[in-house]
Design a protein around this nucleic acid. Structure first.
Lengths: 210, 210
DNA sequence: AATTTAAGCGTACACGTGTACGCTGTTGTG
DNA sequence: CACAACAGCGTACACGTGTACGCTTAAATT
């Protein structure tokens, strides 16, 4: 049970995954990939693909999971930076923009499959984004002392804005424009934070006088 | 030049467009449509398709244009309702949600092609959304007396939130849940409006004392 | 009335697709 | 050591695809 066999299997499994990721681009979506293409890129005979995934769908779901993992790693990274001091919003946006730049195709996968044709894919992406939102929600609730529901609405809005900005960023090559987009996004997040805080405070006052 | 000929041509052109729209659904994206399928649905021989569009791409761009038109009609409709009184935000969200319910597939087309694999499609969708944003920007600037750039950032954020909510709404069947989403969206737009107003005011004060 | 234009059809072709099937060689197990 | 398990390969098949080509038929033009 040393696993020389299982080890090999895991290795070519990763080759398949990497082959798929490699073929993703602005011009190539996952759904446009064929089993044969992926197998070829992985250096496999088409039929050998089935030894690892029963379907392209199964591979796709695996990719979405990986993408979600990348997203969570990003968040941890952002939290570390924030702990060292600095504006929470600014650091978060910067970190996110770096993800777009370094892992654009992974982010593209999430964006595309969120509105894709497979219900399973959509559900998987939505789940990943929900994790993302919930963690932010917790943070906001503790940091800003917000009502639970205000915090959730705030978090949801912030995530929507950031993902929207990410989507825009994918179509921008110019570095200056990207920076401008980042600044705009930061400002939008500040609007939301400000608005949420005010609504939350107002509600507390009305509670006080109840 | 009476146009019996041109009239017929226009008619079957519409048949093609309608055939394509009819095949769009949650499970079927435009890019997954084949020329042959569309032609069949339109009651045409595959090769006759070429008499009207050189490409599936050309048909796709036409559809995006149509979708943009639908969007603009929606805005006019919303403005009419607003003129009759009521909360601007609430009426806008309600109107938008009605679009999702009645024209879900058209909206899906826009959402999908915005992050699709064709640069031309992406550009077309982004252009339509820009129109949408700009009109809102004008409105906000006049109605709330905002700075030009604050108004733009506000408008952009609002559109992002509304489109994001539309995207979420597409995956919700339950009417109650949909209503809840609408309320949440309204609240998010209020956060943004409140935040923008405050930032704008603050800036005016600093101008005053300059 | 004669001629040109053009929408629509049917046939035909080459190509890429998913996958069923049986085989080979290596690893793990009794 | 014998045997089972199994990753990987090659062949083969049916199917759907885009589109080139030539034809028909009805409208438009001359």
């Amino acid at each position: 049970m040393s696993g020389v066999r299982a080890q090999q299997k895991e290795k070519t499994r990763r080759q398949i995954i990497n082959a798929a990721l490699k073929q993703l681009s602005a011009e190539r979506s996952f759904s446009s990939l064929s089993l044969r293409e992926v197998a070829k890129e992985a250096g496999l005979a088409p039929t050998s693909f089935y030894r690892h995934f029963s379907d392209m769908d199964e591979l796709g779901l695996t990719l979405v999971d990986e993408a979600g993992l990348t997203l969570r790693q990003l968040m941890r990274q952002a939290r570390q930076r924030i702990a060292k001091g600095g504006s929470v919003i600014q650091i978060s946006v910067e970190t996110f923009m770096e993800l777009i730049e370094s892992n654009g195709n992974v982010f593209r996968l999430l964006l595309r499959e969120r509105s894709g044709t497979s219900a399973a894919f959509r559900a998987a992406v939505i789940r990943e984004i929900r994790y993302f939102t919930m963690e932010l929600c917790d943070y906001l609730q503790k940091a800003n002392n917000l009502d639970a529901d205000v915090a959730y609405i705030h978090a949801h809005a912030a995530v929507t804005i950031v993902f929207g900005a990410g989507s825009d960023a994918l179509d921008i090559d110019d570095k200056e424009e990207r920076e401008q987009l980042a600044q705009q996004t930061i400002q939008q997040l500040r609007f939301i934070a400000r608005g949420a805080l005010e609504f939350s405070d107002r509600r507390k006052v009305s509670k006080k006088f109840r």
